[in-house]
Design a protein around this nucleic acid. Sequence first.
DNA 1: TAGCAAAGTGGCACTCGGTGTCAACAGGCA
DNA 2: TGCCTGTTGACACCGAGTGCCACTTTGCTA
Lengths: 210, 210
Amino acid sequence: MTSPAGLPLPGEPSGLRERKKQRAQAELARVALERFAARGFDAVTVEEIADAADISRRTFFRYFPTKEDVLFARRREQTEVLRELLARQPGEGAWAAVRRALLALAEDHMVQRERVLREHALLAQTPSLLARDLEWDRRAQEALAAALEGGAARDAASRRRARLCAGALVGALRTVIEDWIASGAKGDLAKRGEEALDLLSPLAPKERAR
Amino acid sequence: MTSPAGLPLPGEPSGLRERKKQRAQAELARVALERFAARGFDAVTVEEIADAADISRRTFFRYFPTKEDVLFARRREQTEVLRELLARQPGEGAWAAVRRALLALAEDHMVQRERVLREHALLAQTPSLLARDLEWDRRAQEALAAALEGGAARDAASRRRARLCAGALVGALRTVIEDWIASGAKGDLAKRGEEALDLLSPLAPKERAR
DNA sequence: TAGCAAAGTGGCACTCGGTGTCAACAGGCA
DNA sequence: TGCCTGTTGACACCGAGTGCCACTTTGCTA
């Protein structure tokens, strides 16, 4: 896809250069996750990862601002997907959109089961990674809050209510995911998610007339 | 307070040594918060803090495992208080205990208003600190979950429900606090907290017969 | 197709957070 | 007083992250 004038858009992959970069980043992420899982996050140095991916240490830090970030590409994508799903609400209310978006994420978790399990094991044994992960929850929460605020009345109380609801949602759904993982990730996460959403639906702010 | 035999208990302040340590730690925390607030967390080095408190860099790290931890003494205490409040439930149900404990924290926030504001400003501009703070939320959440699980039926579904409730509580109440701060910390946080708790009370698991 | 400007890369040196080690020291106690 | 033990400070070291600069690659254009 190009802009009307045929010029490459700023943020878009353009040519060989971009493709090489993407491949290198993917390789770094792959190598890193593999080694972290095997020996723990702290025991693996950036130098080792860079060497294994045949890239200089310096360049590693051009691709990923920190060693931790090499693990969170998936969450970043997830958050973007979430934002997109929430953005286009085809006529439905805000709560319905939120529900649909979150259930889509649940499905994604089930599809990527193996990866989710491996990453979660890593988070569980590395506090700094857990902390980073919680930061991502917060961004998801902000996206949800924005969606709910958009669909609610404009007064301060309704907006506070929307944010409260988003906070409760993220907090609750995280426990749902963790319980699902704790039970071996064998059950139907989407179903558990639906139950939780039904439980939380009374918290949603009143929808604004459309 | 001493043990029955009159011996100093293991974890208790015993003599001059302990008092000096306490004073030094308090001084470090004071100096650190002051400088962080003035120039930002990253712009102040551990060496500077240690020098200002007339202590060696090495000893700083004996008092606080990381530079970040020098800021979280208050949250650690809070979490301990929370745990205590939840532990002794004088005949009341788990939800009532949770409610009482959380409202006590709200009161504390109002009393320490200035400090809360200063610390929050710091968190807001330093992602790594925010992440650490969210980790503390998680510990609070675990304490709440334990209390609610203790008061609920023993089956897996009830326990999951208790954890879900704890997650929602922490997520929601964090937004309540943030909104309170965003509005200048002028309103009655305890009242806002009560409203939120009422809203969330249907999430609490059924209480086990006592 | 040659050449050029810009973007990307690697090496180097440096800062800072955090840790192991060890000798010197101070507090508590007999 | 003198001993024992926990605490301290100095030093060396490691790894994450960054600024800098020379060199290479890519994409474009003459």
